[in-house]
């Protein structure tokens, strides 16, 4: 029933599919690849070669083609692969109570959190830095390098708070952390642990 996907952690989903299949990773990957290939039977083998960085394409397609899939310039085949994983994931997780579907959350970044900082640092590239001790322009880079996940606070209607962790590399269609707070989204989430609200602060 999804009409728009703004974030999808494909690697986690594909791990989940493989593990659910009883560790038959190769079989699942092969199956996904096969079906994606069928859909794109008309696509030249060249395209597959360019996707050799995908773990399940494997070494069959010459390594080192140095393909950089830009955020928007994703090839159609790689999109099909990705959407095949998405479709499989949706079917598999629908009746799995371990994957919780959280609805109606108000999502915010606490004022002193890393996620909050990360929302602003991209703009610091326009800051004047000559007379300052630190290079503000590179702060974004530094934060991106320091942490691959960002925590946001999700508040339900009953005032129960959850911490939602996002893989910064998993946003789709050029969405980012800042956009989440403005959308009415359903989050598919896996419970991984506990923390305190204070634990989200930069200092912690």
């Amino acid at each position: 029933d999804l009409i728009k996907v703004v974030y999808f952690d494909e690697q986690s989903a594909s791990d989940y599919l493989d593990i659910s299949a009883g560790g038959k990773a190769v079989t699942t990957a092969e199956d996904v690849r096969q079906r994606a290939n069928n859909v794109h039977a008309e696509v030249e083998a060249k395209v597959a070669a360019k996707l050799s960085w995908l773990p399940f394409i494997g070494g069959s397609a010459g390594a080192g083609t140095g393909v950089e899939a830009s955020r928007t310039g994703q090839s159609m085949l790689s999109k099909t692969l990705s959407n095949t994983i998405l479709t499989d994931y949706l079917a598999k997780s629908a009746d799995d109570h371990r994957v919780r579907q959280l609805r109606g959350l108000r999502v915010t970044a606490p004022g002193d959190s890393m996620a909050y900082m990360k929302m602003f640092t991209p703009y610091m590239i326009i800051a004047k830095t000559e007379d300052q001790g630190i290079d503000l322009a590179r702060l974004d880079e530094a934060l991106a390098g320091a942490k691959g996940y960002y925590e946001l606070l999700g508040e339900a209607d009953d005032d129960v708070k959850h911490v939602l962790r996002f893989n910064i590399a998993a946003f789709r269609n050029n969405y980012g952390l800042t956009d989440l707070g403005r959308m009415r989204l359903v989050f598919h989430a896996v419970h991984v642990g506990h923390t305190t609200e204070r634990g989200l602060g930069m200092e912690a």
Binding site: D1, L2, I3, K4, V5, V6, Y7, F8, D9, S12, A13, Y16, L86, Y89, S93, V99, R100, L102, R103, Y149, E151, L153, K161, H162, V163, L164, R165, F166, N167, L180, M183, R184, L185, V186, F187, H188, A189, V190, H191, V192, G193, H194, T195, T196, E197
Partner: peptide
């Protein structure tokens, strides 16, 4: 008090 931490796999807009 303790908050539950969730790793998000997917976020999307639902129909309806």
């Amino acid at each position: 008090d303790l908050l539950d931490v969730y790793d998000v796999v997917l976020a999307g807009v639902e129909y309806g």
